[in-house]
Simulated scan of single mutants.
Amino acid sequence: MTVQSLPAWMYTSEAFFERERQTIFRTAWQVVCHLNDIPEAGDYQAFDFLGERVLTVRGDDGEVRSFHNVCRHRASRLADGNQGNCGHRIVCPYHAWSYRLDGRLANVPPWQGFDGIDGDELGLKPIEQEIYLGFIFVRFAPGLPSVAEMMAPYTAELAPHCPADLQPQGRVTLRPRPVNWKNIGDNYSDSLHIPVAHPGLTRLFGTSYGIEAEPWVDKMWGDIVETPSSNWVERHYQALLPTFQHLEGRDQRRWNYYKLWPNVAFDVYPDQIDFMQFIPVSATQTVIREIAYVRPDARREVKAARYLNWRINRQVNAEDTVLIRRVQEGMESSGYETGPLGPSEVCLKGFAEKMAMFIPEAAQAAE
């Protein structure tokens, strides 16, 4: 029996989006940042996700903790912006309640009349947190395995790319897209469109593009070929990409892509590593959240390779933006209900099966 893709209505229905919100995203691990985004006491990252507000902060003791970014008095947001430093206290801008960096209630202004208040019961509410290869993940309800368990098939090959001194390259970028989050994820794990819609990647990889699916992680990869590209950006990247002592063999010239269920991806290159997160907003709106990290390396050819990498991937991003809009428009048409998945589309098949596991209405896609 031919395996079918997820039906179109799942990419447009607000009611189904609400089911995903409650059954998939409550238990899903979300990446907040890297440990080196918050190196000093009081450094924080704020992250909003489907109505939840996360505050991840470095304590005076050096520990990193994640809390709900909500004051226990009247629910005001505590920390503003995406990142910053709050000093040695987190102070609510509404009524000046303050909290220590470990989440404990520090002070309530005495003139407010809260005599005898139980400070032990009114500390910041913690959020479950896991640190994996230096990246900080949170989730809002238990259910899935740990990040380490889910990523286990690829930890050994990822570890050399994630040293303790990995540094953020710039700041988090937010890119709104008028499509369903699954549309972006499907495109990320789709290999059949590479030779059709990404001429640059095809020139770089030749026929080396590969794909495989583990229970919780999809992996795609391509090896940078030696034949000089006809495009000057790609050709210079091929020529300037240096040797890195932390990598062995084909990893010196391999681009790897990993997508962790359901909406977090890592683009892993010899010269840098990026995370991409498909933040669902509604049934037809998503924000792509991304940032790059690099090893300290002062070589001029490394700096040039990273710039060229950025140029190449901005073009790929522009091509993908057009593709996912085309698909979203088709999902809203009465002319499409579902389509067959080919034998090589193992990632899309695995995604449909996991959707069916969490939401029974999706079961028809996994038959």
Score class of each variant (00 low, 15 high):
Ala304Trp: 05
Ala265Thr: 07
Asn263Val: 06
Ala298Met: 14
Gln285Phe: 04
Asp267Pro: 00
Ala292Leu: 13
Phe278Lys: 05
Ala305Val: 11
Gln252Lys: 07
Ala298Ile: 05
Leu247Met: 10
Val294Thr: 10
Phe266Trp: 11
Val281Thr: 03
Thr286Met: 06
Ala304Tyr: 13
Ala305Glu: 07
Gln315Lys: 09
Leu308Ala: 11
Asn317Asp: 15
Ala265Val: 01
Gln277Ala: 10
Phe266Met: 11
Tyr293Val: 00
Val302His: 03
Arg250Cys: 09
Glu319His: 05
Ala318Asp: 13
Leu308Pro: 00
Leu247Thr: 05
Glu319Asn: 09
Ala304Phe: 11
Pro262Asp: 10
Arg253Ala: 03
Tyr258Thr: 00
Arg254Pro: 13
Asn263Arg: 06
Asp271Tyr: 00
Asp274Lys: 03
Gln277Leu: 06
Asn309Ala: 05
Arg254Gln: 08
Thr286Trp: 03
Pro296Val: 04
Asn263His: 07
Asn313Leu: 14
Ala292Ser: 14
Val316Phe: 02
Leu260Pro: 04
Tyr269Met: 05
Val268Trp: 01
Asp267His: 13
Arg295Asp: 08
Glu290Asn: 12
Asp271Cys: 01
Gln252Pro: 05
Asp320Thr: 10
Trp310Ala: 15
Tyr258Phe: 15
Asp297Ser: 02
Tyr307Ser: 09
Ile288Met: 11
Gln272Lys: 09
Val316His: 03
Tyr307Trp: 13
Arg314Ile: 11
Ala292Gln: 02
Ile279Arg: 14
Glu248Pro: 01
Lys303Pro: 04
Pro270Asn: 14
Pro262Met: 11
Asp320Cys: 09
Arg253Pro: 02
Glu301Ala: 04
Arg306Glu: 00
Gln252Met: 06
Arg311Phe: 09
Thr284Tyr: 12
Asn317Pro: 10
Val281Lys: 12
Tyr293Trp: 14
Val268Ile: 13
Arg295Ala: 09
Arg250Ile: 14
Val264Asp: 04
Glu248Arg: 15
Arg295Ser: 09
Asp271Ala: 02
Ser282Ala: 15
Arg253Tyr: 05
Ala298Glu: 14
Phe266Asp: 03
Ser282Arg: 12
Tyr307Val: 08
Val294Trp: 05
Tyr257Ile: 02
Arg254Cys: 04
Lys303Ile: 11
Tyr257Arg: 11
Ala292Tyr: 01
Tyr269Leu: 11
Ser282Thr: 12
Arg299Trp: 00
Asn313Cys: 14
Val316Glu: 12
